[in-house]
């Protein structure tokens, strides 16, 4: 991977993320200069409250940046229309879907709304992309089931398939493995890695899975003290960044095992 030429899709310039407030804006992190390349799996790490979700939401244009700029294909992201942006960025969120009677298939088809006409009819390309999403995530057996009746792991796959059907170069995921057991966590990471490498998607996910991220992600973004450390796992381990950020009076990072142990 590293030998191939990097194709930058999204960059940030002195980005400041947080929440607007009457008196003083609440800054979560500031001075962020980030770069997302195609075919990259990026894991956004950090303790609770470090701003992982805020960063994801800001980059996905679900909330406004406090300061600084985000460029999508070298163009200011705020100049994009919603309809155009929906063909560039798809999301998989932590929030539970409102209860509904949609089947897994109907939900995946909805990913195509970013491309369909006002009557939402499917053409040949739409069907092709839907089939691709179903095959890539391997969920043919789930299609006729109601989404709300699927297990957490199955729901996660369907949501990823929906994002794939949306056919965007960038996919943001906010803690996609939260409710999953260890097998399904690994399965999700493998799937995301495959999607990034095989289909040249840029996949950025906020996660608490430090161990899996160290093993699987092409790049780590570690949020700490309103700032961010970026780089690949080896460098961040060598520089002791991971230990510095996550070690506490209870745990320490074991670089060889890529996991935390009790002190």
């Amino acid at each position: 991977m590293s030998s191939t030429q990097k194709n930058s899709i999204l960059t940030t310039q002195n980005l400041c993320i947080g929440y607007p407030n009457k008196d003083a804006n609440i800054e979560i992190a500031t001075g962020l200069n980030l770069e997302i390349n195609s075919g990259e799996l990026i894991a956004v790490l950090g303790k609770n409250g470090s701003g992982k979700s805020t960063l994801i939401r800001t980059l996905a244009q679900m909330q406004a940046a406090l300061n600084g700029k985000i460029f999508l294909h070298q163009k200011d992201i705020t100049t994009y229309k919603r309809e155009v942006l929906s063909q560039e960025i798809s999301v998989v969120l932590t929030e539970k879907l409102p209860d509904n009677l949609l089947t897994a298939y109907e939900l995946i088809v909805m990913g195509r709304q970013a491309h369909t006409n006002w009557l939402d009819t499917l053409n040949a390309i739409d069907k092709e992309k839907i089939d691709f999403a179903i095959q890539a995530t391997n969920i043919t057996s789930l299609l006729d089931k109601k989404f709300s009746e699927l297990s957490d792991g199955q729901q996660q796959k369907v949501l990823i398939a929906k994002a794939l059907a949306q056919d965007t170069p960038i996919i943001f995921l906010d803690e996609p493995t939260t409710h999953l057991d260890v097998h399904h966590r690994m399965e999700t990471f493998l799937l995301l890695k495959e999607l990034a490498h095989k289909y040249q998607k840029s996949i950025i996910m906020a996660t608490h899975e430090i161990g899996l991220s160290v093993q699987m992600a092409d790049e780590l973004w570690i949020l700490e003290k309103k700032s961010i450390h970026t780089g690949n796992s080896q460098d961040l381990i060598k520089n002791k960044i991971i230990s510095q950020v996550f070690d506490s009076d209870l745990i320490q990072f074991n670089a060889e095992k890529a996991s935390f142990e009790y002190k």
């Binding site: 309809e83 929906s86 879907l97 409102p98 509904n100 909805m110 006002w118 009557l119 939402d120």
Partner: peptide, 22 residues
Amino acid sequence: IPLLKPLNSLLLGENYAQNMGV
């Protein structure tokens, strides 16, 4: 009639609907 599409997106919640261009 033009509302049928966004009404369906709203089934997934406002954040997803917005991400799908609504």
